[in-house]
């Protein structure tokens, strides 16, 4: 593995992220809108005696959404790099395909985790307190989900070659992944078919892990759906599998 190459691929993404104010702005505005408009609206429909207030319940899901969008966006930029030629500069360098994939996955991880951290800092508005340990736990989980989703995004980018496919990816992969992830409603309350969909969605386990950290004592319908060990195992295994598939896909390309 070439660490200099991995470093510079990440540094490039970070630089672009900092420079693109609109990307940063919408990354912060979108979750706030969801939290205060959707969350505040729906919390009136849901009776307060089910445990965690709804606006707090969807908070892990909002973090998951931020990570999902930003990681996929970061990885899908490979399609742009291909379209505008820059990918060739990377492919023709003496750098292993594994390093390129890891560099790209870490790029998504860094920008997504930064955004998740910003959202997390804004949370006191919705009325709960996290200890420093919980804060660190959430950030670590966010970083690992980001890595897994970014690696998944690289796989998508190698399958969808043109930027016309961007809206296909958004509408048919990213949005369903968000809605079927336990972000808006507990997985255990979903109808059978949707529950199966949620169970094969890696994001579900990431959000579930955050629920474990944020609501450690919750036992009602709003409680986490899987054991913490399952969550962590799924995140780690999917990360490795996606990195492996992406590496294979890159090798096929030359």
């Amino acid at each position: 593995m070439e660490f200099n190459a991995i470093y510079v691929i990440v540094a490039r993404e970070f630089k672009k992220f900092i420079r693109e104010r609109s990307r940063l702005f919408s990354a912060i505005a979108r979750p706030l809108l969801w939290l205060f408009i959707v969350g505040a609206g729906l919390s009136r429909l849901i009776s307060p005696d089910t445990g965690v207030p709804y606006i707090q319940f969807i908070f892990p899901g909002i973090l998951g959404m931020t990570i999902l969008f930003s990681s996929i966006f970061s990885s899908i930029s490979i399609i742009w790099d291909k379209e505008f030629g820059f990918l060739k500069e990377i492919l023709v360098a003496p750098v292993s395909r594994l390093s390129i994939v890891i560099g790209k996955a870490l790029s998504g991880t860094v920008v997504s985790t930064i955004q998740a951290a910003i959202i997390l800092v804004l949370f006191p508005f919705i009325g709960f307190k996290l200890s420093l340990l919980q804060f660190i736990g959430v950030i670590l989980i966010c970083a690992s989900i980001s890595f897994s989703i970014s690696a998944f995004g690289i796989v998508l980018a190698t399958f969808y070659e043109s930027y016309e496919s961007f809206s296909v990816i958004m509408n048919f992969i990213v949005m369903p992944m968000f809605f079927l992830s336990g972000a808006m409603y507990p997985v255990k309350l979903l109808p059978e078919i949707l529950r199966i969909c949620a169970k094969i969605n890696p994001l579900t386990y990431g959000i579930d892990a955050i629920k474990h950290v944020i609501f450690p004592r919750e036992a009602g319908p709003m409680s986490p759906d899987f054991s913490p060990v399952t969550d962590i195992a799924v995140i780690l295994i999917t990360s490795i599998v996606f990195v492996f598939i992406a590496k294979k896909a890159f090798e096929r390309k030359g």
Partner: peptide, 15 residues
Amino acid sequence: LTAAENLIFHAYLYN
């Protein structure tokens, strides 16, 4: 990226 940044990127890639 700037001209210099493009070159620095390359320098890192080539170790």
